[in-house]
Simulated assay, not measured.
Amino acid sequence: MSNLLERHQQIIELIKKEGSVKVTDLCALLNVSSVTIRKDLQFLEDKKLLYRTHGGATLTNPYIADRHVEEKVTLQAAEKQKIGAYAAKLIEPNDCILIASGTTVQYFAKNIVAKENLTVVTSALNVALELIHHQGVEVIQLGGLMRKTSASVTGTYAEAILTDFSCSKLFLGVDGIDLNYGLTTSSMSEALLNRKMIETSQKTIILVDSSKFGKRGFGKICNIDDIEQIITDSNVSEHTIKTLESMGVEVTIV
């Protein structure tokens, strides 16, 4: 019985340190079979000490709910402001960029200072409204079905318009980043539009606060290796940062 309790304690300590664990790593660390580890994780989940995922477990509930943009804009506001301010510095003179939907990219739009002429293509109404008063910014608003929760358009019409553009950078907010599964959002239609945006852009930059790591939404946008850079806050674990960098992603902590 002591071995069982010690094993459970080790699992809990590791997941608190790393944020998530894999069954294969636990098998090697604790020198037991995958069947035993899966039973351990089931027991610990029943005790509400962790959440099981495909191939492992995480400390926080990995499944996200669709929240209204007016609610999300107040969450992690300080972190989003720092992320947005840093991202705004990446804009170059005469740039043509894509901005997707979300509240973190809204903070990015608030911080934009146009360098000579800037063209912004966006699906998000809140982003367009932030930029409409800038004399040096030309805003192209994509058309389509308006999602009320995100205040952004989706659908085949918006996707079709993107074929006429080529942008240097895409600034993309997401609802979840799972190191194994990839980047997700709560809407499948928004995920499909985000994929088209990635295809339209030379570089994809993810603006995301640390609360989104280890989470999954219903709609998968892309794999980790489809993006170039992530800008986030300092609450991301060192393990996550090193894993992302080993996958070829530039991680910027603000």
Score class of each variant (00 low, 15 high):
Q10I: 11
Q10S: 11
Q10V: 13
Q10P: 12
I11P: 00
I12F: 00
I12T: 00
E13N: 12
E13Y: 07
I15E: 01
I15V: 07
I15W: 01
I15R: 01
K16R: 07
K17E: 02
K17C: 02
K17Y: 01
K17L: 01
E18W: 09
G19C: 10
G19S: 11
S20I: 02
S20V: 03
V21I: 11
V21F: 02
K22V: 06
K22N: 11
V23A: 04
V23I: 13
T24R: 14
T24P: 12
D25N: 12
D25F: 07
D25A: 07
D25H: 04
L26D: 04
L26W: 11
L26V: 07
L26G: 14
C27G: 13
C27D: 10
A28P: 04
A28T: 06
A28K: 10
A28I: 02
L29Y: 14
L29N: 14
L30M: 00
L30E: 00
L30S: 01
N31Y: 07
V32W: 08
V32Y: 08
S33G: 07
S33M: 05
S33T: 15
S34W: 07
V35S: 13
T36E: 05
T36H: 13
T36A: 08
I37C: 15
I37M: 09
I37T: 09
I37R: 12
R38H: 10
K39D: 02
D40W: 14
D40A: 13
L41K: 06
L41D: 10
Q42C: 12
Q42F: 13
F43Y: 15
F43D: 09
L44W: 01
L44I: 02
D46K: 15
D46T: 14
K47W: 02
K48S: 09
K48R: 08
K48T: 10
L49T: 02
L49M: 03
L50W: 12
L50M: 13
L50V: 15
